[in-house]
Design a protein around this nucleic acid. Structure first.
Lengths: 131, 131, 131
DNA sequence: ATCGTTCTAGAATATTCGAGG
DNA sequence: GCCTCGAATATTCTAGAACGA
């Protein structure tokens, strides 16, 4: 009861300049494109390297400190602070958790690559479609 | 309170260079493919020659020191320290214990050969299929 | 690699005197009765009132400090330290999370009541049967 | 109405115990 | 006494479903 409801901030969406945001909003029929992906991009750009970061090659990202991720990152980008909700979103968008090898524990998606932001737009459009 | 409590480590997966990883992840559709085989490969590469090792020709492996294998190897690669659980996994994946000859006491599998890591990938995919 | 590696303890089973354990082992044909329920009983008896506790009437229990529950309780009673794995077990045994009212957030099961340990034995035997 | 959040369940592998050869 | 296997529970990851904003 003492670690609940830490005043959830609004989606700050530092991604105003993120052409991801622009692209999705323009290409999708009606408004409300997936905020999750743009929030994820923001987070990975946002100087949280000690908490969550890309692997060196930019093919997947790892949550390095789950507790700080919940308390410091999620709270500022979503309406909750639950890692499980974040993971549910990852799976909804087709991310998979890597179970073996050097990147074990990281999440990856074929089209979610650090150096190919264009591909991320494809994700945003196809995520729910393929369901 | 706590009986023996050996500190079970996480699967460290020293198999970074293991192309087993790349092949299986790319060929298998979803989810967590068998960690057991990659862990076994890691173990046999991991500098435990006094505890567990391939035979000279690389066709089977022998547990040379069961006690150290339990306490030093299993604990670091699995969530248990029981040789019997390790043996159960071996049998689930089709390994057989050699009963006679120079390699008596070693475990072998048709597709688990030191110098044919590609074949191990076949194991990973067919092991459960044939069950 | 340098993940966290919490030292997972063995199931300490402080429930020696717990007739739950005796009842299940004697009544069930072959071995391995569900350890989860007896572990849960142990936990709720184990002096973790600040971390997990029954409600005053003993009809449900609440995890009060998720972080300490993972690090201090789960690690000593299971082979993991993941709250999500604990929750999966709760659901497998038919527990439900209370969503509203004074006990919101607590887990409850019709036959899991603090003052009716006999009913818990019924759970242990019927939980999987009804699946 | 769609997406987000939460809770529950499915599916695959892992661990344990014991039966049977 | 091994060795192999069946079966039950446990752990993990992903998906279904209900609800809400």
């Amino acid at each position: 009861m003492q670690r609940d409801a830490p005043s959830f901030g609004r989606r700050v969406s530092t991604a105003e300049q993120s052409n991801l945001q622009a692209a999705t909003t323009s290409s999708v029929k009606r408004g409300a494109p997936a905020l999750f992906l743009s929030a994820l991009v923001d987070i990975l750009r946002g100087g949280y390297e000690d908490i969550i970061a890309w692997n060196p090659s930019g093919t997947c990202f790892m949550i390095r400190d789950a507790e700080r991720f919940s308390d410091e990152v999620l709270v500022h980008h979503f309406k909750h602070n639950k890692l499980s909700s974040f993971q549910r979103q990852l799976n909804l968008y087709g991310f998979r958790k890597i179970s073996r090898g050097p990147d074990a524990g990281a999440y990856a998606h074929e089209h979610f690559l650090r150096d190919r932001p264009e591909d991320i737009q494809v994700m945003a459009m196809s995520s729910r479609a393929e369901v």
